[in-house]
Nucleic acid binder design. Structure first.
Lengths: 227, 227
DNA sequence: AACCCTGTTAACCCACTCTTAACCCTCGCC
DNA sequence: GGCGAGGGTTAAGAGTGGGTTAACAGGGTT
């Protein structure tokens, strides 16, 4: 669940935004001026902040600068009616991460909010198959609670199979994926398959590594769901 | 020095951009289609990527999707003449981080590039991770009450890791960040990691410097950080 | 000149990974 | 029934990656 703060003095616009974000499963606090905003930021944890520039008490630019001076890196999206280049540059100079000109489409706001919110909180690219998840950045696999300890080759092997799942992958394709051109001459693949299969069996019953005789291997969910 | 990749088939526009970025102290490689781009990305390290959408061979959207599938999180800015909302949403869905409509002001491009390429230029004076604070101006690190005594390299190392936290950072990226092009040939990094880790352990239990085998290192808060 | 601080290098060790070679089983075919 | 091929199972050895340590070189300072 994404959690953001909106600082905006136009009540109508603010409620529209809050409502819309809510639909998109983004929880949104609201402050109607910079001082209130700063207060909320100090007492809460937000994944990103939407700032109107024109506001009474404290405008968005100063608020953003204050944040940055305090060492807070929370992503900020500036919202304003001023479309001039100088205004935008001013916004970025103040430490903003994005700049959206009113009027804007709600969907675009949502898209940009999601991007900014994800960036900080460690977005992770994952491959998923049943209760098996592959973390491509950390090169590790998660099954339910536990994480599999996979060597680089084992991970690459699993990744290759999951990418094609539930289709079978031929031996030569797998070898190509793992070793490229200089492939080992022996039965290395057999061994890796064996170890991987054992780890999978130990960790879950929902995923099975099948052998397709004379062809290669395929990884499947046990529930016979086609895909 | 910021290092980015531009993938753009319009040679005139491309040279304009490259020249302009160069003035702003941003070094910029150029590929004129998606396939070339992918190649460069695989063999180099870029802090962010500027992608034209309309291109022969492989368009920007597919290239971006491919990157994300491979687990690469490099920020992407989409560049296109199409201004419609659907196009933008498509861009964001493909994994883009920003979207700029042609024609655009060079200065705005530069501002957005700088933001995406890690706020290098930004106003960030401090980085925070749990009870660890980095003061980028004073080049010192504060944990709770005490301050760590860090050599320049150790500080840069910590900074690099904290910037990406909790994502892992590859060895090559770290080396790039610390030494630039002329990197020491030996196991200097190992030693620095070792010393930094010892200092961190002595100072706090809330932050941990993890090794990601065959990948690099990641710094994390010990509290169950989501994802 | 003596000293400290920093960064690099080499050397060593441990754990782990990968490959290899062996042996096993099963199944189909002669 | 014998035999061979494809696949599964094991254990052992070489190689590698990472952690640890100490020595050393260069720059700056006193």
């Amino acid at each position: 669940m994404i959690n953001v703060l909106l600082v905006e003095d136009d009540i109508d616009l603010a409620t529209t935004i809050v409502d819309y974000l809510d639909i998109e499963d983004i929880s949104c606090d609201h402050a109607s001026n910079g001082v209130m905003g700063l207060n909320l930021i100090e007492n809460n944890q937000y994944q990103m902040i939407i700032l109107d520039i024109n506001m009474p008490k404290m405008d968005g630019l100063t608020l953003c600068k204050k944040l940055r001076e305090q060492g807070k890196n929370t992503p900020v999206l500036m919202l304003t009616a001023r479309d001039s280049l100088d205004n935008k540059l001013e916004g970025f100079a103040a430490g903003s991460d994005d700049y959206l000109v009113k009027p804007f489409a709600m969907k675009e706001l949502v898209a940009r909010v999601q991007v900014l919110a994800k960036r900080k909180s460690g977005e992770v690219k994952r491959l998923t198959l049943a209760n098996l998840q592959l973390d491509l950045t950390k090169h590790c696999a998660i099954v339910g609670e536990s994480t599999l300890k996979l060597s680089p080759i084992a991970f690459k092997l699993l990744e290759t199979l999951v990418r094609e799942a539930p289709q079978p992958v031929t031996r030569s394709v797998i070898m190509q994926a793992i070793w490229g051109e200089e492939q080992p001459d022996s039965n290395s693949l057999k061994v890796h398959i064996y170890h991987l299969r054992k780890q999978l069996e130990a960790a879950t019953q929902q995923v099975k590594l099948e052998t397709i005789p004379n062809i290669g291997f395929a990884i499947k969910t046990v529930q016979g769901d086609a895909q």
